[in-house]
Amino acid sequence: MEFLTVLIILVLVAVVGIWLFIANQGDAHFKFIVDQRTEFSLKEKTQDAATFTTTIPFVNDGTQDGTLMDVFSRHFLPYEQFDAVDTDTRLTLDSVNRNDGYWEAYIVPKTTGGSIILTVKFTAKAGDIKAALADMVDMPIDIVFQVVARSPWYIDKARLVMTAAEIQKALAASEAAAR
């Protein structure tokens, strides 16, 4: 009987030890650091369209490698709020810089990161783009990302705001550089 009790205690200690080892392994944890993004700059301007870009850093500050399976942007500019432009947003990894709107799965080792480029294109519904953006409002943009790591996959998001003041500043800087 003593032998059986000792054996059960050893098995329980082993199970608890294995569980603690697994629980201590941690997981990947991604963070898009939107408050450290660059200011939006004007990348391209035509008579009826303007394209702006910003660079946003991200980090996997977890204890395991993780994969960013899908990353995309979602802008919030309902026509009830501002109806002078059509808006398109895209994300790409800074180191790959694709222009087809496709996010290729990206493995990020623990305690490392990178940066993404967010591109926002405004197309005037009528007339000149500068006139269309004259009364632009602040526009929230979500960065939505799917993470695959040790735990079950999950979707998270980070939000930034493209301000009307940033848009006007980028347009003015472009005009000043053109002179």
Rank of each mutant, 00 (worst) to 15 (best):
residue 50 A to C: 03
residue 111 T to D: 03
residue 126 A to M: 13
residue 119 T to V: 06
residue 61 D to G: 15
residue 60 N to R: 03
residue 30 F to R: 01
residue 85 V to R: 02
residue 103 W to S: 08
residue 79 Y to Q: 08
residue 93 L to D: 13
residue 109 P to D: 02
residue 39 E to H: 04
residue 10 L to N: 09
residue 57 P to H: 00
residue 153 W to Q: 03
residue 3 F to D: 10
residue 74 R to E: 08
residue 72 F to S: 01
residue 147 V to H: 04
residue 170 A to H: 09
residue 176 A to Q: 07
residue 144 V to N: 04
residue 107 I to C: 05
residue 143 I to K: 01
residue 76 F to M: 12
residue 146 Q to C: 07
residue 106 Y to D: 00
residue 90 R to H: 00
residue 149 A to Q: 02
residue 80 E to W: 05
residue 108 V to W: 01
residue 92 T to M: 06
residue 67 T to M: 07
residue 168 Q to S: 15
residue 87 T to L: 15
residue 4 L to R: 07
residue 102 Y to Q: 07
residue 47 Q to W: 02
residue 57 P to C: 06
residue 35 D to W: 05
residue 23 A to E: 11
residue 17 G to T: 11
residue 97 N to Q: 14
residue 172 A to D: 10
residue 75 H to N: 06
residue 126 A to I: 14
residue 142 D to N: 11
residue 26 G to K: 04
residue 106 Y to V: 02
residue 99 N to M: 14
residue 61 D to R: 14
residue 36 Q to F: 00
residue 172 A to W: 07
residue 112 T to W: 00
residue 25 Q to Y: 03
residue 44 E to T: 13
residue 106 Y to N: 10
residue 44 E to I: 11
residue 87 T to I: 15
residue 76 F to Y: 05
residue 66 G to P: 11
residue 157 K to S: 15
residue 66 G to Q: 09
residue 141 I to A: 02
residue 179 R to Q: 11
residue 94 D to H: 14
residue 148 V to H: 06
residue 54 T to W: 12
residue 122 F to W: 09
residue 164 A to R: 00
residue 136 M to F: 10
residue 130 K to M: 05
residue 134 A to Q: 14
residue 56 I to E: 12
residue 44 E to D: 13
residue 17 G to K: 11
residue 66 G to M: 10
residue 100 D to L: 08
residue 117 I to S: 02
residue 54 T to S: 15
residue 51 T to I: 02
residue 101 G to A: 03
residue 165 A to E: 13
residue 173 A to R: 09
residue 55 T to N: 12
residue 84 A to Y: 03
residue 122 F to H: 11
residue 60 N to I: 14
residue 80 E to S: 08
residue 159 R to S: 15
residue 21 F to I: 09
residue 138 D to A: 00
residue 54 T to E: 08
residue 73 S to G: 11
residue 54 T to N: 11
residue 3 F to W: 06
residue 70 D to E: 11
residue 24 N to M: 12
residue 91 L to R: 01
residue 64 Q to T: 05
residue 131 A to Q: 14
residue 105 A to E: 08
residue 150 R to H: 01
residue 150 R to W: 03
residue 131 A to E: 14
residue 103 W to P: 08
residue 94 D to T: 15
residue 4 L to C: 10
residue 152 P to W: 05
residue 104 E to N: 07
residue 100 D to P: 04
residue 34 V to C: 02
residue 80 E to N: 11
residue 156 D to L: 10
residue 55 T to S: 14
residue 175 E to K: 14
residue 79 Y to G: 03
residue 19 W to V: 13
residue 150 R to L: 08
residue 153 W to T: 12
residue 87 T to E: 12
